[in-house]
Amino acid sequence: MSNNKIHTWIIGRIIELLARQNMTVNELADKCNLSPSTIQRYLNGKSIMKLDNIIKIANELSGSLQKFLETMDEELQVELLSTLDNPNT
């Protein structure tokens, strides 16, 4: 597994939650104090999300990072935690 798989999952989760809440990218950007173009670059895979921005988005869409990640499969969660513990590997 790779960081790319984690990133792809996060993008999918953001898109899923935006649709579920009938929220636009502009509305999410406003609530997270990010520019709409920044979020759009994330969703298009043109920019890698910074952890602090993932947390902002997760909190807005789910209430917490934990709830945001609750549908992530266990294997991918282990990979994510490993990446967070060892960001330079």
Score class of each variant (00 low, 15 high):
residue 88 N to H: 05
residue 1 M to Q: 05
residue 48 I to M: 08
residue 19 A to I: 10
residue 42 Y to C: 11
residue 20 R to H: 11
residue 41 R to E: 03
residue 5 K to D: 04
residue 48 I to E: 11
residue 61 L to Y: 11
residue 59 N to V: 14
residue 28 L to D: 07
residue 44 N to Q: 09
residue 78 V to M: 10
residue 37 S to H: 15
residue 2 S to T: 13
residue 2 S to F: 03
residue 69 L to W: 08
residue 29 A to N: 14
residue 21 Q to T: 11
residue 79 E to W: 06
residue 33 N to A: 09
residue 18 L to M: 08
residue 62 S to I: 00
residue 67 K to T: 10
residue 58 A to E: 02
residue 78 V to D: 02
residue 63 G to M: 13
residue 10 I to T: 01
residue 12 G to F: 06
residue 51 L to F: 05
residue 30 D to Y: 15
residue 44 N to E: 07
residue 76 L to P: 07
residue 43 L to Q: 03
residue 67 K to Y: 03
residue 7 H to Q: 02
residue 49 M to H: 08
residue 30 D to V: 07
residue 65 L to A: 06
residue 5 K to Y: 02
residue 54 I to P: 01
residue 43 L to S: 07
residue 19 A to D: 11
residue 60 E to S: 11
residue 4 N to D: 10
residue 53 N to K: 09
residue 56 K to T: 10
residue 45 G to C: 10
residue 73 D to Q: 13
residue 79 E to Q: 12
residue 18 L to Y: 09
residue 16 E to P: 01
residue 69 L to E: 02
residue 31 K to F: 03
residue 81 L to Q: 11
residue 15 I to C: 06
residue 83 T to N: 02
residue 30 D to E: 10
residue 64 S to K: 08
residue 50 K to Q: 12
residue 46 K to Q: 13
residue 45 G to N: 13
residue 67 K to L: 03
residue 60 E to W: 02
residue 65 L to K: 12
residue 84 L to K: 14
residue 67 K to A: 13
residue 72 M to K: 09
residue 24 T to Y: 07
residue 43 L to Y: 00
residue 42 Y to E: 01
residue 82 S to C: 04
residue 59 N to A: 10
residue 89 T to E: 00
residue 29 A to S: 14
residue 79 E to Y: 05
residue 85 D to V: 00
residue 80 L to T: 11
residue 43 L to F: 06
residue 64 S to P: 07
residue 41 R to K: 14
residue 54 I to N: 01
residue 46 K to G: 10
residue 83 T to V: 04
residue 78 V to P: 03
residue 21 Q to M: 09
residue 44 N to S: 15
residue 89 T to R: 11
residue 37 S to L: 06
residue 63 G to P: 00
residue 56 K to Q: 07
residue 16 E to H: 11
residue 78 V to R: 14
residue 54 I to G: 00
residue 68 F to C: 06
residue 35 S to I: 10
residue 72 M to H: 07
residue 43 L to W: 08
residue 4 N to L: 09
residue 8 T to Q: 12
residue 60 E to T: 15
residue 10 I to N: 07
residue 16 E to S: 13
residue 33 N to Q: 13
residue 89 T to Y: 03
residue 75 E to I: 08
